[in-house]
Design a protein around this nucleic acid. Structure first.
Lengths: 127, 127
DNA sequence: TCCTTAGTTCAATGATCGTTGAACAAATGA
DNA sequence: TCATTTGTTCAACGATCATTGAACTAAGGA
């Protein structure tokens, strides 16, 4: 069950508004956030975003989101668990994430059909 | 007092979240919004942003903001009155603008010193 | 009329973006 | 052990970005 080396994430106070806005100013990444907002606390794997773009593209976009401090990425086995950095974002930019998510709800990204809301077949977090 | 040809602005319902986020994902443009938020209803001229960047750059950035639907730009004589599209943004993305402005308040942009809060020497709007 | 103010246009530049496919690595499972 | 699953790295590509300076336009004021 080896814990893998963590990926680099900015500290909470390193998260800047321009970086976050730039990270979210992309349809694919906004769609990722939309997906994630429906799985808060659980997270999703990169593989679950492949309806949005190619594997390589997803790696790229998830990195952008991680580097901007929007998501947390944790290696688990061969997968990466991606979660929203909800608390950090709320602390830094109160109300911001909620307003984004609300406005994202109806955003239709082509290629993504509102489908099975299965919480993923990732092992549930041991809390 | 010739009214000049208006510049192209997106309709309210043409304003999209990715476009707005992209427009705001830049330090200079975020600073412009910060300035504007302290003059809501009055607006500012491009010339009042020249502490942030060169004249040419300002033209470029203000265009970006206008095309994304973030600001309104109205020719008045030789100047351009730039105002936040507050109502449109609030309608499309409730809470969003306020959260941005709140988080922008403390953003220090180098070159901009918190200075004279003079409402500009632009003629006051005739309401 | 001529000058000044305010802002735009243009071409050029280097930088960053988002995508692709091929090759790779690492953990898992049979 | 060997194959599969999951995701990363890399080089390459065209596209867009943000900035510059020089030349320009349009409106006002002396």
């Amino acid at each position: 069950m080896s814990t893998q080396p963590p990926l680099p994430h900015p500290d909470t106070d390193q998260i800047t508004l321009p970086n976050v806005l730039t990270a979210l100013g992309d349809t694919t990444r906004l769609a990722i956030i939309g997906h994630l907002s429906r799985c808060e606390g659980i997270g999703m794997t990169c593989g679950q975003f492949t309806d949005l773009a190619s594997k390589t593209s997803i790696t790229y976009h998830v990195s952008k989101l991680r580097e901007a401090g929007v998501v947390n990425v944790t290696p688990e086995g061969t997968r990466r668990r991606v979660t929203l950095r909800r608390e950090d974002l709320d602390q830094r930019f109160p109300g911001f994430l909620d307003s984004i998510i609300a406005s994202t709800a109806d955003l239709h990204i082509d290629g993504f059909e509102e489908e099975t809301n299965e919480p993923a077949d990732l092992p549930r977090r041991d809390p």
